[in-house]
Amino acid sequence: MAKLIVKDLWASAQGVMILKGVNLEINEGDVLALMGPNGSGKSTLAYVIMGHPSYTVEKGTIKFDGEDITNLSTDRRARLGLFLAMQSPYEINGVTNRDFIKQALDKKDSNQNKLISYYKFSLKLDKAIADLKMDKDLADRYVNESFSGGEKKKNEILQMKMLEPRISILDEIDSGLDVDAIKIVSENINNLKSSNNMGLIVISHYHRLYEYIKPSKVVVLIDGTIVKQGDSTLLDYIDENGFDEIKKEAGIKEEVTLLETCAFKGDK
């Protein structure tokens, strides 16, 4: 069983430390809800796990399936079975979705020596598009170019369905989706989870998504550190109290208070 283990992870961007000793563990089949206020480091953690070159790992390790992947290139992490559905997917002008996904699939499968024929690939792609209730022509449009916010998010899940990763990180996959689309996307994610025993790290600000994708574990990240963990009842607690109570428990002061204090001292 594949396991992702993040141990004492410290990471920075442009000299600013964002992650400050994150510890996390997720097995295939698990659903982990990653919560936290804006700017707490959730997306950074997702990017660092996926090897974004803008972030520097200062300390700690990321292990996947027993292998230390802390310094592995992004593509090799992906081929091992990690997937990141991005909050703001990039547009690739001139490259069609179909060609892109086929190439990605060929790369993944060449690792396992079982290349898929173009015919079988097309059937699989058509089915995945139908499952997600996407327009058929999206397959032959350029990757994310002129896609609506909702289409971009569905396109991330389309890629996930085609690549069948072992552990996926969904970074605010529900933003930009209407109520019906959230349901469709969630169904597709749950189906893939059931059939492939995929593990999930789900980042979202909204309780609604977790009604469809039930987390087995909830962790709260504040100021680059995991300050609280629990089962799904923690979601209700956050819904009722926000993050303020958790910040108080963890002894985290509001940044705005510090700024006001500085301004006050300056005035004097």
Binding site: P53, S73, D75, A78, R79, F83, A104, L163
Partner: peptide, 10 residues
């Protein structure tokens, strides 16, 4: 990065 995150080499 986006393309690499889907398994394509640099």
């Amino acid at each position: 990065y986006y393309l690499m995150s889907r398994g394509l080499s640099y």
